[in-house]
């Protein structure tokens, strides 16, 4: 069995390092930050940690249904493909900052893209 990307990147520690960088980028990105304004930043951060764990291929309990119900209110707010693209772009830049190679970043983006339809309720 080949090592998962999650392990290659450094497991939970890598996710923890990535969360702050990723969340900061997202909050500073005017294209999408309105979807991330949350009452509770810690709660928001733990959701992002779960998301990063998933796209790194780590242990997660996400299902397509979770993705749909979890984002339904955002779809009502107008969430569309361009916003998903922006999130994936921020994700890529986060990984670049952490020294992850382009080939690995492409794999992460592919996993993120695999939930696009669920996220957008299609």
């Amino acid at each position: 069995m080949t090592q998962s990307l999650y392990d290659t990147l450094g497991g939970e520690a890598a996710v923890n390092a990535a969360v702050d960088i990723f969340y900061r980028k997202v909050l500073a990105d005017n294209r999408i930050n309105r979807f991330f304004e949350s009452v509770d930043m810690d709660k928001q951060a733990s959701k992002q940690k779960a998301f990063l764990t998933m796209v790194f291929g780590g242990p997660n309990k996400y299902t397509g249904k979770d993705m749909r119900t979890g984002h339904a209110h955002l779809v009502k707010m107008g969430l569309n493909d361009s916003h998903v693209d922006a999130v994936i772009e921020n994700l890529g830049n986060t990984l670049k900052e952490l020294g992850v190679k382009d080939a690995e970043i492409a794999k992460v983006a592919a996993i993120a893209n695999s939930v696009r339809n669920d996220v957008l309720s299609r």
């Binding site: 969360v19 900061r24 009452v39 930043m41 810690d42």
Partner: peptide, 15 residues
């Protein structure tokens, strides 16, 4: 507190 938390985080403080 809410606004400052966001701003401190954007200014580079770890959550």
């Amino acid at each position: 507190v809410k606004a400052s938390k966001r701003n401190a985080f954007l200014a580079g403080a770890a959550l």
